[in-house]
Every structure is written in C-alpha cells, then in structure tokens.
C-alpha cells in the first residue's frame, strides 16, 4: 500500500479518466449531429433535411463508440500497471505485508 499521496493521485487519475470517457462519448455524438444539421440547413438550405443529420449522427455515434473503446483500453492498461506496482511493493515479505495492512487501516 502506497502513501496517502500516491493513493490520492491514483484516485484523481481514475476520476479524470472516468470523466473523459463520459464527456468524449457524448460530445462526439453531438458534434456529429450538429455538423449534419448545419450542413442540412445552411449549406444545402433544407433540401436534404433529415438525411445528412441522420448520416452524421451515425458517424458521431461511431466516433463515440471508438472513443469509448480506446479510452477504456487505456484506462484498464494504466490501472493494471499501477496495480502491479502496488502489489509488487506490498507482497514483498510477510513483515512488509503486515506493515502495509496496518498502514491501510490507520
């Protein structure tokens, strides 16, 4: 078990990763929808009204799913690395493990 500062930094990293996933998925979808809507209304002046919006909504949705996959992969990889480092320090000897346990409880 690391010091409280390392634990806090790890929690902050998890928090930042989680908010990035939530925001990136939603915002890429809406970026697609708004781009399609403006292409429909301003560029083609309403002649192709629902179709480009739907097409770009699908592109945006795909981008959101892609973002979710990439960010989730990175998040799990990072967390596994940190977890491995932590276990490496904790499971050194019996004595150290005991020390870590009491450290965690205090």
């Amino acid at each position: 078990m690391g010091t409280i500062r390392q634990e806090l930094a790890l929690a902050l990293r998890h928090f930042s990763n989680a908010t990035t996933i939530a925001l990136a998925v939603v915002l890429s979808t809406f970026a697609g929808v708004i781009t399609g809507y403006y292409l429909d209304i301003k560029f083609f002046e309403g002649k192709t009204y629902p179709w480009l919006t739907i097409l770009f909504f699908l592109f945006g949705l795909g981008g959101g799913i892609k973002n979710f996959i990439i960010l989730t992969k990175r998040f799990t990889k990072e967390a596994e690395k940190k977890d491995g480092e932590r276990k490496g320090t904790v499971l050194g000897t019996e004595d150290e493990q005991h020390q870590g346990d009491t450290d965690g409880q205090s």
Partner: peptide, 24 residues
C-alpha cells in the same frame, strides 16, 4: 479491489454519459 474499482469507474462513466446527453 483494483480491478473492481476500474470496472466500476467505467460503468459510472457510461451511466453518467446518459445524464450528460440530457444536459446537452
């Protein structure tokens, strides 16, 4: 604990994204 926390955060992010949809 570590793996469960990561999975929980990913799930929370997905759930939170629904609220952000409504917010946007």
């Amino acid at each position: 604990a570590g793996k469960l926390t990561v999975t929980m955060f990913i799930g929370l992010a997905l759930i939170e994204s629904l609220t952000i949809y409504a917010l946007v």
